[in-house]
Nucleic acid binder design. Structure first.
Length: 937
DNA sequence: ACGCTCACG
DNA sequence: GACGTACGTGAGCGTA
């Protein structure tokens, strides 16, 4: 049947996304045998399409058919309401690569495949259904999405393909309590939590239908809201009238979308058997390929049965060629790249900026790569010359896109939940793009993939990874930027060089991703990567961008006070030493004390000499020496002040951001091998607290006017984890009973009843407890406690006797590390211990590190999980998370909401191990609050 | 660039 | 039997 669509014609419209999701959830996670590509949803999709083709015979068969897909995440509905669909969960990791394949499948079946930027599939379906109806034909929408039910009637029906049930006007009435023409009114009132349509609070479908049926339609209802008898209902409708009208706009489908095709283009076509079978064979669908071949009377193509070797190099064998990279200078060229990105479903991205600090750096350009060797650079604000020419202008270089135009085009892609953005150290790029209003998601990060697999084995910077995995040395940045005083920023780098350098970074990143991603599964660290590494990126980006307010005047006053004290100390020091010298020089101190003054330690010996041959003058040495002379104590005091002044009160002032008045640290996620974060520029994880003088520096970390700082820290988390992992009944019981753990240890070891415990015995036990966590040795404990080595060894022996599980844990852990080359945390994080088999002292180091890593690492995992869950948990509180200090989280909260924040955040932290790891000990969190960090802690 | 020292958990 | 040792970090300074 052909001719213009009209009476007697029957159009089938398949809701592509709904089909894919159903297929995905209905089937186990199948993968392609040869390379492990996830393929379950594609398989289900193809089977459903084929079943439809097979079933569609007889008088009711469609004459026209199309599969309609969503395109992009940003639609006109987001312009009306920016929270539209904001509750949507991210697309599952193994589904994303299957989306483009389902489009290919549709084409292979020779079925029209349609989508339209800026509109949802539902709008296209609405438009086509209207056209079919107006032309006098019939239309069946294959979907069970209730949002489409407003279209039913007058020749338009829905078909639930899974249940094989048709939904007509009566079916809609069953579901909504109204007929299709009033469905949007009911939806506007009831709202939709899945799409985040607000609706009227407290009103569901039942009540909504009741009201609409009583008043006729929504407008009449809102107009006559005063007449409603129930006071609560009346008030809700009056108060939220605007929100309800907005909700109706959101749920009302647009049946006038501009389409570049007509119904006639959708006429049913016979598939090309060669093309279809080739596609099915490529997917390695054996059964389906056979069935299709039989039905079409064609030869069954062969499907290779040999899976690729798991370790075979996966990355395409494309040589690096910097001449092949493209400079993107206009919208048309960029459009071409965006098409390629949508085709692939992923893109590697790298941002170039004017500096390394994301808070002060400006975006200079963006590079993209979609397949190995195919990369581009979009320069945005490069200067026409290097800027070192006195007469040179700061004009922009030719051939660059307008910044806003470019970002406007990129934003929908970078925020599209179906397009995966791949980067190396994505926290940097996420922060840079956040500065220009782009919330990039979802992401993958090659640095974190490497870290999840190989923590402890090697670094995870791009240069190191490229050398190691791609056997390729990236173009070094140094020659482009220069160094020292004549260094230039990237916007001054000539475009020709910039394109090569920047595009290569994206190319390398994409290749690393292709290589490292499949290895995650093999190394069994996919869970670690997906639950402990990647989700931390946006959380840390937000914390770093928030920063913490630091009061410059407080620091400045402290600096001055320190200067004065140090000047006084210097006079005393020079008097005692008999001459002037540089007090900051350990070498000169050693010469004065041990050569010129010939001082000896209390045991009559001299201290050790360091690698450079100078006397060791560390605090422990000077502390001992202080018992025989006054000078060492003065030097210790001077050093403490020098440290506080130079590292804290002076240096911190230089880190106060000019625009925000706050200090913004940067956390490295893949720095510490154990899974701990590290804080840099500045390090806010080592702000003084142990000495009273140093502790006062925390007074300079303040809450904003009208706000409070709240600190929550895990109590003894590492010892709790040790008690669990090593399975020590006495320790577990002590934590269950909230008994002072160090006192308990002392009581067990030294046979002192708890009521008779003295601070000194407790102090020794505390040192032993910490020693255990660090891989205790008699020597180390002796030095720490300043007791003879034999005595320390005696303590350790008694400890092991009392808690034999500890020794077992230590021995087992060392044996595991020797056998596997790594140890693991309770959450599966791997920490490699390559030196464990070494000879000499290095083996001792490695053994102690191996003993410590599962404990420190598990604690790190716990707080990571808490941090990842925190933003959602506190999203309705006027609070934000600012800092992490290993076992502590610091928040800033509006005054009045402190207690609510504490109870909410505490719960998240105390339950952070659940549900994947059950602990025999509870986790306990202490809380404090105040106008500055000293008070809050 | 490297070692020393010292701040934190 | 000798050797050197508590675990994990980052920053500032002096010295080469």
């Amino acid at each position: 049947m052909s001719g213009t669509f009209g009476k007697g014609h029957h159009l089938h419209l398949i809701d592509g996304s709904a089909f894919i999701f159903r297929a995905y959830h209905a089937l186990p996670p199948l993968t392609r045998k040869s390379d492990g590509l996830p393929i379950g949803a594609v398989s289900g999709f193809c089977n459903m399409i084929f079943k439809m083709v097979e079933d569609n015979t007889g008088p009711d068969a469609p004459t026209h058919v199309a599969v309609i897909f969503d395109k992009g995440s940003h639609t006109f509905r987001n312009d009306m309401y920016d929270l539209y669909k904001a509750n949507r969960e991210a697309m599952p990791e193994d589904l994303r690569p299957q989306i483009p394949l389902t489009r290919q499948a549709t084409e292979a079946f020779n079925i029209a495949c349609k989508e339209l930027e800026g509109f949802e599939a539902d709008d296209i379906i609405a438009t086509l259904a209207r056209q079919a109806r107006e032309a006098g034909g019939r239309c069946t929408i294959i979907s069970s999405d209730k949002d489409l039910m407003q279209l039913v009637g007058d020749g338009v029906e829905m078909l639930d393909a899974m249940k094989n049930t048709r939904i007509d006007r009566d079916g809609v009435f069953d579901k909504f309590g109204v007929y299709p023409d009033r469905v949007v009114d009911v939806q506007a009132l009831a709202g939709d939590s899945v799409d985040n349509v607000p609706g009227a609070p407290g009103i569901g479908i039942k009540t909504a239908a009741l009201l609409i049926n009583e008043y006729g339609d929504l407008d009449a209802l809102l107009e006559r809201a005063e007449e409603i008898k129930q006071p609560k209902r009346r008030q809700t409708l009056i108060e939220h009238a605007d929100q309800i009208r907005l909700s109706r706009k959101l749920v009302l489908l647009d049946d006038r979308t501009p389409l570049d095709f007509t119904l006639d283009d959708l006429e049913v076509r016979e598939p090309d058997s060669d093309k279809l079978l080739a596609f099915l064979a490529e997917m390695e669908f054996r059964t389906l390929t056979k069935r299709v071949a039989e039905k079409m009377g064609a030869e069954m193509p062969t499907i290779e049965d040999t899976p690729a070797l798991p370790d075979a190099p996966q990355v395409d064998d494309v040589p690096f060629d910097t001449d092949n990279y493209e400079q993107v200078g206009d919208a048309g060229t960029l459009e071409k790249w965006l098409d390629a990105i949508y085709e692939a479903g992923h893109v590697a991205i790298d941002t170039e900026t004017t500096g390394l600090n994301e808070m002060t750096a400006d975006l200079v350009g963006i590079s993209l790569a979609v397949e190995p060797g195919k990369a581009c650079y979009i320069p945005l604000i490069h200067k026409a010359n290097r800027g070192d020419d006195l007469f040179g202008s700061d004009d922009l270089a030719e051939g660059q896109m307008d910044l806003d135009t470019c970002l406007g085009m990129l934003k929908p892609v970078l925020e599209d939940p179906s397009i995966l953005k791949i980067g190396q150290n994505m926290k940097y790029d996420v922060k840079i793009l956040a500065q220009v209003g782009i919330a990039m998601a979802p992401i993958d990060d090659t640095m974190l993939m490497s870290y999840a697999q190989h923590a402890g084995l090697h670094g995870h910077g791009m240069d190191a990874l490229s050398e190691r995995y791609l056997d390729h040395t990236p173009i070094p940045i140094k020659p482009l930027l220069g160094s020292g005083k004549s260094a230039i920023t990237f916007d001054k780098v000539p475009l020709e060089d910039a394109v090569k350098y920047a595009a290569e970074d994206a190319d390398i990143t994409l290749r690393l991703w292709k290589l490292l991603k499949p290895q995650l599964h093999a190394a069994q660290v996919t869970k670690v990567y997906e639950t402990l590494e990647r989700p931390l990126v946006p959380v840390l980006a937000d914390m770093e961008r928030a920063g913490i307010k630091v009061d410059r005047d407080t620091l400045s006053r402290m600096s001055n006070a320190f200067s004065q004290k140090m000047a006084g100390l210097e006079d005393e020091i020079f008097g005692l030493a008999g001459r002037k010298f540089s007090v900051g020089s350990p070498k000169q101190i050693g010469e004065i004390l041990f050569d010129e003054m010939s001082l000896d330690l209390p045991d009559g010996k001299k201290p050790a000499k360091g690698k450079s041959g100078a006397w060791s003058t560390g605090a422990d040495v000077l502390e001992d020496l202080a018992t025989v002379h006054d000078l060492p104590r003065r030097i210790l005091d001077w050093r403490q002040l020098d440290k506080l002044k130079s590292t804290y009160t002076d240096a911190l002032q230089n880190h106060i951001n000019k625009d925000t008045g706050r200090v913004h640290t940067s956390y490295s996620i893949a720095g510490a091998s154990t899974g701990r974060l590290a804080s840099t520029d500045p390090n806010l994880q080592n702000i003084p607290i142990r000495s009273e003088e140093g502790r006062r520096i925390r007074e300079a970390f303040v809450a904003e006017e009208g706000k409070t700082l709240v600190a929550l820290d895990y109590s003894q988390i590492e010892l709790r984890i040790l008690a669990h992992i090593a399975d020590i009944p006495e320790l577990k019981q002590a934590f269950a009973d909230d008994i002072d753990i160090h006192a308990l240890t002392a009581s067990e070891m030294f046979n002192v009843p708890l009521p008779e415990m003295t601070p000194d015995i407790r102090r020794q036990a505390k040192a032993i407890n910490f020693g255990v966590i660090y891989g205790i040795s008699g020597f180390g404990l002796a030095r720490n406690l300043r007791i003879p080595r034999a005595e320390a060894q005696g303590f350790i022996d008694r400890y092991f006797e009392r808690f034999p599980g500890i020794r077992t844990y230590m021995d087992d852990t060392k044996a595991f590390a020797k056998k596997h080359g790594y140890v693991q945390t309770l959450f599966g994080r791997r920490i490699h211990t390559p030196e464990i088999g070494a000879k000499g002292p290095r083996a001792g180091f490695a053994a102690r590190a191996a003993i410590n890593a599962p404990i420190q690492g598990t604690a790190a995992d716990v707080i990571r999980r808490a941090m990842i869950r925190m933003p959602d948990a506190i999203r309705n509180l006027p609070a934000r998370m600012l800092l992490q200090v290993h076992d502590e989280l610091l928040f800033e909260v509006e005054q009045g909401a402190e207690e609510e924040l504490i109870s909410t955040a505490r719960k998240v932290m105390e339950d952070a191990n659940e549900p994947v790891v059950r602990l025999d000990v509870k986790l306990t969190v202490d809380a404090g609050q105040g106008s500055n960090w000293a008070e809050a802690h």
